[in-house]
Nucleic acid binder design. Structure first.
Lengths: 402, 402
DNA sequence: CTAGGGGTGTCCGGTTCCGGACACTCCGTT
DNA sequence: AACGGAGTGTCCGGAACCGGACACCCCTAG
């Protein structure tokens, strides 16, 4: 979905596209007309292979899925198998099952297989439209959150964390999100709220400035919860004892043990059920790569300039950077690259690096750096893990500038 | 669930316990009789607060949940809210919705809210029993997997990873699992296979000994995938190009970058879709604590001895330990503690163990061997790729016996 | 048959790296 | 306040490694 700007300055997304899998041409025609009136493009498939081909080759935002495509088949097994295959290809794909052979059993089976929702034939036009548009909107909301500001997720670790956050989004469980400045705490908090399917208001509170709690309920996002004064912490704990309590998402740059040391115990009992810890960017090079690709595209569109090429050499440099300001710092570097063509991340960018397969020295450096980070730059422990003596490790640290 | 042994030597688990939430006493009585005949204990609750209290204070393995408890209420909203609350408290709790006010809409809503299954009143006794017993059995299977060998998961990071693994278990997606020796790669692989709901055979292959691929399909678990010879890697890649391909779970102690450097690119394209990286035990003190509690209980039962007390001081020592042999090492320490009452956390053997996180020499050896294999033992080309001179490479080959 | 390119395995004087030891700091416990 | 444990950063005599050079082999093209 491009973010091209029209004259009034508003982003104009392209039409959403859905795929309808049904063996009945009349149904296809009727649906296409219905959706066209709402500006929704509709692709068609009449069977499993065509559907998977369409999914693989087109940008599909949602699937409507009948469960039977072979004459005389009514068990829905074909459609359930296709549903599973689709969700392997596209984990996040909304699939709405639309079937005439209805019943609780098949509905339950479809939902268990991963369907987003279930509609019986013949459908009610308005209800179907509402469901499709609502699902597309929520998906666009999720995508808009990821467009800018970015919650780009590539590394396995962050994917797990975001999946956990998404799973919890629909609850009203209070959350703590920890992580270094610029690691994406507020992004994650916004995403959780957006995906919570709650339309209540969100209030963002700088804890260090907080002298009164908001009147209305809803969702409260506290920045720097560790800086909340003790009296306010107690008032917040009292507020959370009430029957109708707001949902709290508390952000902090402190790590969990330190945070637990500074929060009021009663407040901690409310908040501490779930702690999501965002790792620093330097620990997730896959995210560096994904974010880099995203920012280059985003800023080249935003500034109307050519998108710079990110070659392997630069990729390695970006991944190796320590990023003290996390995503914020990376974002700045990439915007500057788009604007000026310069890549000011660190000097001596091309120090003995070879493209392609890393040399032994490259690998050695990477392993040493990783071990040092894992042990918080405790040289004794890192050396032990690496099978080196401390002086040997010191020499390598000097050699590689660590 | 205790693992007490009866006279014939078989483990006899205590009776499973379910909680039935329904406001109709007659329904409760009928259900209790039904389940008692099958050796299933049944707790009762007639409303939301009682249910949550029971859940919090008892070891409940499964919940049967009616959706309405207030006279005249038929929307199911109470029950859906309770379902959500229960799943916040116990993420992995199987909840079967049992309701008389049925319909596709409410069934879909219940499933979306996280119910495991859906049964309409009045139920068929045999079907309900089959469903409950089947669900309990799957849960026991999952728990048995975790009992011994242990896949104890307490830290947030590992919980995310295992959740991702469980989600992928039902797919046939190939996986790579990396992590130091003893971190639990094989445990995780077995768990994935067990939860995949596939009854196909599993074949465990030591990659360094592999000279022919198995005939049958199914699931192939490769230990030390990095040690697979280049010709075998190519044959495996060819095999995976075929239409009916086995499911591959590839294990390695190398970290992802080093692994990517040694695997055939075509093979990597097949396998590299998902990489699950098990962190070393020293990075997850919550797991240390949970595993310690587990092993102490397990070994005290197994050996018929008193369970040692794990005080704060010992906890701190265990968490601070570097655990070069990961869970295997911790397990040994705790078994020794049960058997002898001594808490030897470090031994000379573990200090220089080749197992555990690979040392630089281990990694260097592996990379050299792989490069040599990749180039058919052409020393000149391998040296060039590795960034070494030929004499330097010769010396390393001699050092490592290549 | 000859020449050239690419590779092999080893040598050896010079250079670099090794690790045990030392002096010191910091922090928690008594 | 003193002590001990864990860690830091550096030193230095000896050991190990370095790479250019050498002699040689194999294969292919002319």
């Amino acid at each position: 979905m491009n973010m091209f700007r029209n004259e009034s300055g508003e982003a104009t997304p392209s039409a959403p596209c859905i795929l309808f899998v049904d063996d009945d041409p009349d149904v296809q025609v009727a649906a296409r007309l219905l959706f066209r009136r709402r500006g929704i493009d509709m692709l068609s498939a009449c069977g499993t292979e065509e559907a998977l081909t369409q999914l693989a080759s087109s940008s599909v935002d949602l699937v409507l899925l009948d469960l039977n495509y072979t004459k005389g088949m009514t068990t829905g097994a074909e459609g359930l198998a296709l549903l599973r295959d689709m969700l392997v290809l596209r984990q996040d794909l909304p699939v709405i099952v639309v079937t005439g052979h209805s019943g609780v059993t098949i509905a339950v089976a479809a939902m268990r297989a991963g369907a987003t929702d279930f509609v019986m034939k013949p459908w009610n036009n308005e209800r179907l439209l509402a469901l499709v548009e609502g699902t597309l909107k929520r998906r666009q909301t999720a995508e808009a959150l990821e467009a800018e500001p970015a919650m780009i997720v590539a590394s396995g670790e962050l994917r797990c964390l975001v999946a956990e956050a998404d799973r919890l989004a629909v609850t009203r469980a209070p959350l703590i999100i920890t992580g270094a400045a610029g690691a994406g705490k507020m992004l994650l908090a916004r995403r959780i709220h957006a995906l919570s399917q709650e339309s209540d208001p969100v209030t963002i509170i700088r804890a260090e400035e907080c002298e009164a709690l908001p009147q209305e309920s809803g969702t409260w996002i506290f920045r720097n919860i560790d800086a909340l004064s003790v009296p306010m912490q107690r008032r917040l704990a009292d507020r959370l004892d009430e029957r109708v309590a707001p949902r709290i998402i508390a952000l902090s740059s402190l790590e969990q043990p330190a945070l637990e040391a500074v929060l009021d115990p009663r407040l901690l009992l409310h908040l501490g059920m779930v702690v999501l810890s965002l790792p620093p960017l330097c620990e997730r090079p896959d995210d560096v790569m994904a974010l880099s690709a995203h920012f280059l595209r985003y800023f080249s569109i935003r500034h109307g300039l050519a998108e710079p090429v990110l070659d392997e050499e630069r990729s390695r440099i970006l991944c190796r950077e320590s990023w003290p300001q996390n995503v914020r710092g990376l974002r700045a570097v990439l915007e500057r690259a788009v604007l000026t063509g310069t890549w000011g991340t660190s000097s001596d960018a091309s120090e003995t690096a070879t493209q392609g397969t890393p040399t032994l020295r490259d690998t050695e450096r990477s392993l040493i750096e990783t071990a040092l980070r894992r042990h918080g730059f405790n040289v004794t422990q890192a050396a032990r893990e690496l099978g080196l003596t401390r002086p040997a490790l010191y020499r390598r640290m000097a050699r590689y500038g660590l």
